[in-house]
């Protein structure tokens, strides 16, 4: 009996001492989690879209708590209301969020362009693209199989007449569709702008004309009429510099093939309605 006690008692004592030390240490040296974190996290919409450049909403909230230099206006889906809340919680100055919406730079629907082959493979733009650049006669245009629509967390993209259409009112500007499109047809545009080039065909005008009646033929008419020098034709397709564009609409009026469009992207932004 005595031998057992001699063995058990030291081990128990060592165990109790270790436990006591650990308890004291964890109490004394507890690292305070930033108490603002839950509040900051609650402000964010929780879409985890990554538009802010951090790994999800948790990542952005953590960065905001740790570094006061991180701007509060990075949450594009959250828009102004979230930026305001964040600024209040963190006690920093509020900066306006430039809301962005996705626009599709292609308008080659069934009425304006044709299929060159009948495609019956996997229902995915990325797969169709591998097969001779897609079924449409224009290899730059929308493949119409809806990879972007599947990527959209808001179901804001539909495929209408073979072309992806962003329902601007539901778009939160997260940019997931931009990364998904194998033809890079979608881009984010500040929602205060209204003029967009709805074509991405980089072929020469004559070739474009053959495959699509609303394609940009690179005639440079828009370049000449633009009063602020915001529109440039590069690689046979017009591109708008939104820093300079004043939305005068001159380019759209004069566009030979009417591939430059004026669409109101404002007013119904998803998060503005809240």
């Amino acid at each position: 009996m005595n031998e057992i006690l001699i063995a058990v008692i030291p081990v128990v004592i060592i165990g109790v001492v270790c436990a006591a030390v650990l308890v004291v240490a964890s109490k004394l040296m507890a690292v305070k989690e930033d108490e603002r974190f839950p509040a900051v996290r609650d402000c964010l919409p929780g879409a985890n879209c990554g538009a802010c450049g951090y790994a999800g909403c948790d990542g952005y909230a953590k960065a905001l708590c740790e570094d006061s230099a991180v701007p509060t206006n990075l949450c594009i889906p959250g828009a102004d209301s979230v930026a305001k809340q964040l600024s209040e919680v963190l006690g920093v100055e509020f900066a306006d969020v430039v809301e962005q919406v996705a626009v599709v730079h292609c308008s080659g629907d069934c009425a304006h362009t044709q299929d060159k082959v009948a495609y019956s493979g996997i229902e995915s733009c990325a797969a169709a693209k591998l097969l001779y650049g897609g079924k449409g006669s224009c290899t730059f245009g929308c493949l119409g199989l809806g990879d972007c629509a599947n990527a959209c967390p808001q179901n804001a993209i539909i495929i209408k007449d073979g072309v992806a259409q962003v329902m601007t009112c539901d778009c939160i500007g997260c940019g997931l569709c931009v990364k998904t499109c194998p033809n890079r047809l979608i881009s984010l545009v500040p929602d205060v702008k209204t003029t967009i080039v709805a074509c991405s065909n980089r072929d020469k005008g004559a070739v474009t004309r053959k495959v699509c009646s609303v394609g940009c033929i690179g005639c440079k008419k828009c370049e000449k009429v633009c009063p602020s020098g915001a529109i440039k034709v590069t690689d046979n397709v017009a591109a708008i510099d939104y820093d300079k564009c004043t939305d005068c609409g001159a380019c759209a009026e004069n566009c030979t093939t009417k591939c430059i469009k004026v669409e109101d992207l404002r007013g119904c932004h998803h998060f503005n309605k809240q």
Partner: peptide, 15 residues
């Protein structure tokens, strides 16, 4: 026993 407790302690101190 001692190593386990020690590493826990070191972790707390390092943190």
């Amino acid at each position: 026993l001692v190593i386990a407790a020690l590493v826990q302690l070191v972790e707390i101190v390092l943190k």
